[in-house]
């Protein structure tokens, strides 16, 4: 599965479009990480635990998008976009979407 965030796949020709595919996940942080992040929050800087969490969540959203594209018979997704929204205090939604295509 090739993913790009431009309208084409360089070096390949797009032969078929399958339309929009998307994957999303809503994640809440857990207490253990919250405790460490709370301590780190006093001195500022990167909150590594949260970065990991967001990374995992984004990976899951991407995987779900890819799964959906595979069901359609696509072998690439173009124009991929990511968005993050905080749904409630301490929970975030990750959304990944793109256009599923078949390329040769």
């Amino acid at each position: 599965m090739i993913l790009t965030n431009i309208e084409s796949i360089p070096s390949k020709n797009i032969v078929e479009h399958y339309g929009l595919v998307q994957g999303s996940t809503i994640r809440a942080k857990h207490v253990g990480r919250d405790l460490m992040a709370g301590l780190k929050n006093i001195v500022g800087g990167e909150l590594k635990g949260y970065t990991e969490l967001m990374k995992e969540a984004r990976q899951q959203a991407t995987d779900r998008m890819v799964e959906q594209a595979q069901e359609l018979g696509a072998n690439a997704i173009i124009n991929v976009r990511f968005t993050t929204t905080s749904v409630s205090q301490g929970a975030a939604e990750m959304l990944a979407y793109g256009t599923a295509v078949r390329c040769e």
Partner: peptide, 24 residues
Amino acid sequence: PTPDLPQIASSELVVGSVVVSVDH
């Protein structure tokens, strides 16, 4: 990508992220 680029061998999506907070 502009059309005058050299021949492209491969392309892939890359992501980087970081969570930051301010100090007290």
